[in-house]
């Protein structure tokens, strides 16, 4: 190997001596390329294309981002709207549930002067025949409402209850005010609940019916004296 390289090195110096005269003899084949030689437009086109690509890319990106942000805002807005609507619905439903509780209906019916049916006639639909007449058993006194809460949170209701169960008929719970106070009572915290409910204390005016009590006492005294034997062992 070293021998071979040695040989090559030895032969190299000879080469210039053989080629040099030739180059000097021929006309120069290489020369500096002038800018004028190339087509001036080729480079510009490329740069413009690059710039266009860049700019359009940026613009598209910007547009996409804008649209996305826009959608996000729209979504937020619609979501807020949907929330508001469902809140309203819930609130109204809650109010509806509250006013449709039987004791509220009973009080309302009473305030409108309604009474439980004292007689019910059963009629057969097909031939109109009267099947029978049922009388109400609770005619001893006026119908009273005694199931309203007695907790401090609803002292107003308690007052109405006391009035109702004392044989008085609760009258005039201001119709316009009642639903709104009820709604507020359930939509606010406890303190305000107590406050808003106690606000209705004065609303149910009462009218006494002293005759009712006497009647019920009488009916009690007239009951059958037969009594139930009770255990008296031990």
């Amino acid at each position: 190997m070293s021998q071979q390289t040695a040989v090559r090195q030895r032969t190299r110096p000879a080469r210039p001596s053989t080629t040099h005269p030739k180059a000097q003899q021929a006309t120069p084949r290489l020369r500096v390329v002038q800018p004028a030689d190339t087509h001036a437009t080729e480079g510009v086109g490329f740069v413009v294309a690059c710039l266009l690509l860049l700019v359009s890319g940026l613009v598209v990106l910007l547009l996409l981002n804008t649209v996305r942000a826009q959608q996000s805002f729209t979504m937020d807005r619609l979501q807020a709207q949907s929330n508001t609507l469902s809140d309203t619905q819930q609130e109204l439903q809650s109010d509806l549930d509250n006013v449709s509780a039987p004791q509220q209906l009973a009080l309302k019916a009473q305030s409108l002067g309604l009474r439980p049916a004292s007689k019910i006639r059963y009629v057969r639909k097909s031939d109109g025949k009267v099947l029978g007449v049922a009388k109400d058993s609770s005619q001893a006194g006026p119908f009273t409402v005694g199931t309203l809460p007695t907790t401090p949170a609803s002292q107003a209701a308690g007052a109405a209850q006391a009035a109702a169960s004392a044989g008085l008929v609760a009258v005039k719970p201001k119709p316009a005010k009642k639903p709104s106070t009820d709604g507020a009572a359930h939509s606010t915290a406890k303190d305000s609940k107590a406050k808003s409910k106690s606000g209705t204390t004065s609303t149910p005016k009462t009218t006494s019916k002293p005759s009712a009590k006497g009647a019920s006492d009488k009916s009690r005294s007239s009951q059958n004296p037969k009594t139930n034997p009770k255990k008296t062992s031990r």
Binding site: G132, Q223, K226
Partner: peptide, 23 residues
């Protein structure tokens, strides 16, 4: 008979009326 009887009568009467049970 005297205490629970009348109350029974009221509630039963209401239940029958509300349940549309003919006499």
């Amino acid at each position: 008979g005297n205490v629970a009887g009348p109350v029974f009568s009221q509630i039963m009467s209401y239940a029958l009326h509300e349940g549309h049970v003919p006499p």
